[in-house]
């Protein structure tokens, strides 16, 4: 089985990266290949990283309230690049009223403060696209 490849990104101007770093480490410890983009990434940079890294999933950490600007742009760019099968999840401070709006955009998982790391790990493992398994040539 190939490892699940996840891009963890911090879009926008916010630098509070505790959550992004903790979840990046938890996913890595759960056996995934994690690419952490670092801070202040534009949607273009994030989608670019997903393309380049052949990512199966993208995790966006947003606490600043800018999610309704950032997420639509990321989803739009993914579509443009033909990456609609990449699983997108968002973690952070997201008001209840915005949850259905994000879901309608195609964001599959929205994780609010206090979510156990295991819940997120399980969600990604269960919802990520199935890779065409490379036949082991041994």
């Amino acid at each position: 089985m190939q490892k699940i490849r996840v891009v963890i990104a911090k879009p926008g101007l916010d630098g509070h990266d505790r959550g992004a770093k903790v979840i990046a480490r938890a996913l890595r410890d759960a056996g995934m290949e994690v690419i952490y983009t670092g801070l202040r990434q534009t949607p273009e940079q994030i989608v670019g990283a997903a393309l380049q890294e052949d990512a199966d999933a993208i995790g966006l950490s947003i606490l600043s309230g800018a999610h309704m600007h950032i997420c639509p742009r990321v989803m739009e760019l993914l579509k443009e690049k033909g990456l609609d099968d990449v699983l997108v999840v968002v973690g952070g401070i997201i008001p209840d009223v915005d949850v259905p709006k994000l879901e309608a955009l195609g964001v599959k998982g929205i994780f609010l403060p206090g979510t156990p790391m295991q819940t997120i790990i399980d969600f990604i493992q269960q919802n990520v696209r199935r890779r065409v398994d490379v036949v082991d040539s041994r």
Binding site: G12, D14, T42, S64, G65, H69
Partner: peptide, 11 residues
């Protein structure tokens, strides 16, 4: 500025 999108007056 480009990076200010969605952040003005929020936090």
């Amino acid at each position: 500025h480009e990076l200010s999108l969605g952040e003005v007056g929020k936090c």
